[in-house]
């Protein structure tokens, strides 16, 4: 067994798990944070994307022993009881998610991008989402939402769609 202590969404969490446990399994099975999804388990689909020490990573490709002392942010750490995170709000507004299974991973990739680059171009957004597969093929609306969220995070008005 490996004893691991790390910070998840601002809280210190500990667990004692077999060494072959991945960060994704730790989050889902031990901490009940099921927002991060298991899609392929080999780092191809990006549904398990979380932010570790500021960088988006595939949580299915990290062993628990490797996340000792690290700072992990998951989809559950973006919003609180009263507020949505701008990306979540705009993904909802633009209807960017269809089946939704890729959503948490996509939003975490987008969050990491906007943290670094407050005004990304379409090309930069596409590059940032290169590791997140969406089989409902809803990338266009995701890009619209990410651009909208970047406006809001910069304190500008987002180009929302008006109801008829």
């Amino acid at each position: 067994m490996v004893n691991v202590t790390l910070r998840v969404n601002g809280e210190t969490r500990s667990a004692s798990v077999p060494p072959e446990t991945t960060l994704l399994r730790l989050l889902r099975d031990q901490f009940n944070l099921t927002g991060s999804k298991l899609g392929c388990d080999v780092g191809d689909c990006g549904a398990c994307t979380v932010i570790v020490d500021g960088q988006p990573v595939n949580s299915c490709l990290m062993l628990v022993g490797q996340v000792e002392g690290r700072e992990v942010l998951t989809i559950e750490g973006l919003a609180n009881a009263d507020h949505l995170y701008p990306l979540q709000k705009l993904f909802e507004h633009f209807g960017s998610l269809q089946c939704g299974f890729c959503g948490p991973g996509v939003i975490m990739s987008a969050k990491a991008l906007l943290d670094e680059n407050p005004d990304p171009s379409t090309e930069e957004i596409r590059d940032a989402l290169g590791g997140n597969l969406c089989r409902c093929t809803g990338y266009t609306k995701m890009i619209e939402a990410i651009k909208g969220a970047s406006c809001i995070l910069r304190g500008e008005e987002a180009p929302l769609v008006k109801s008829a």
């Binding site: 500021g54 750490g77 919003a79 995170y85 701008p86 943290d115 995070l153």
Partner: peptide
């Protein structure tokens, strides 16, 4: 580079800076 970018290493605040009321 990570060390050159101390902002990356900053703990992520769970509450976002700008947010929408639900």
């Amino acid at each position: 580079d990570v060390l050159e970018r101390p902002d990356i290493l900053k703990p992520q605040a769970p509450a976002p800076l700008v947010a929408f009321p639900i």
